[in-house]
Design a protein around this nucleic acid. Structure first.
Lengths: 141, 141
DNA sequence: TACATACCTGACTAAAATGGTCAAGTTTAG
DNA sequence: CTAAACTTGACCATTTTAGTCAGGTATGTA
């Protein structure tokens, strides 16, 4: 079980945005430099964040990104879903009439992973960007 | 973020074992057939479970595996750790003096993943094999 | 004692996911 | 009109996953 960098990068970038977008849009270049994340990779991530209406973009010189909602309205679950960092547990095909692993019944752990999924999602639904801002009033660059 | 099959297989196999090892040791072959898991893969998994004293083995004809403790004493966290299915979050090198991503300070999400890790582990520490047995009194084969 | 059964070990591998890079744009402020 | 910034999509090296394969070794039973 593993948490990947993409979700972490997305959260880091948005915290950065929340801190710096108050006056002007923030360019990915700036975020890249401040957070040490590859610019090209950031572009992929922000493309998804934009599709999910978490950020808005302005083109051209002095352009960049801003949050489309207030930090306390952006929950971590929104961010992680946007970049496809969902909790994937059992791969039992829900379509199929069969249970897990081709058996007639559900595998004995089926409910377990469901519970875990709920458990983790609850955690992410409670946390907002605002919560992270509070814990990190020290400067980062 | 993803949960892999290895951990799921380990739990499935141990639930199977808990149900059938009361009289004789259970052969991996039987578990393989009942649970639809490759025999060779099961051997790898059980090798780790044995190293971590979760199961005991008997060789020879009529041999097989039995649990080394009672089902209520085996927590999911023990099982998942045994098969290296730990929760891995940030890859910040703890050795290094530097913070995450080569920055001087901890990345803004550092504490977040720590919290999540604790949150998930708490879940696994509460659940025992016994708990899974209760929820699955229906037959599985 | 033979031998089948079952555990044990380690090397190997196809496929997928991860964590990016690279190239070629389009848009717009100045 | 041009540089800064967003946009899109193809591409790729590495690592992980989920096994397979090939050989063992140990031992209960006939």
């Amino acid at each position: 079980m593993k948490l990947t960098s993409k979700g972490r990068y997305a959260v880091m970038a948005l915290v950065d945005l929340a801190r710096f977008d108050t006056i002007n849009p923030v360019s990915l270049r700036d975020i890249s430099l401040r957070q040490g994340i590859s610019l090209d990779y950031l572009e992929q991530i922000f493309s998804k964040l934009k599709k999910n209406q978490i950020v808005k973009s302005t083109r051209g010189t002095q352009g960049g990104y801003v949050l489309s909602k207030k930090p306390n309205e952006i929950k971590l679950t929104n961010i992680l879903n946007a970049v496809d960092e969902k909790v994937k547990t059992v791969q039992c095909k829900k379509e199929s009439k069969k249970g897990c692993n081709g058996k007639a019944t559900k595998c004995v752990t089926h409910n377990l992973w469901d519970e875990l999924e709920t458990h983790i999602n609850t955690f992410f639904e409670k946390k907002s960007l605002q919560d992270l801002l509070k814990n990190n009033s020290e400067r980062v660059n």
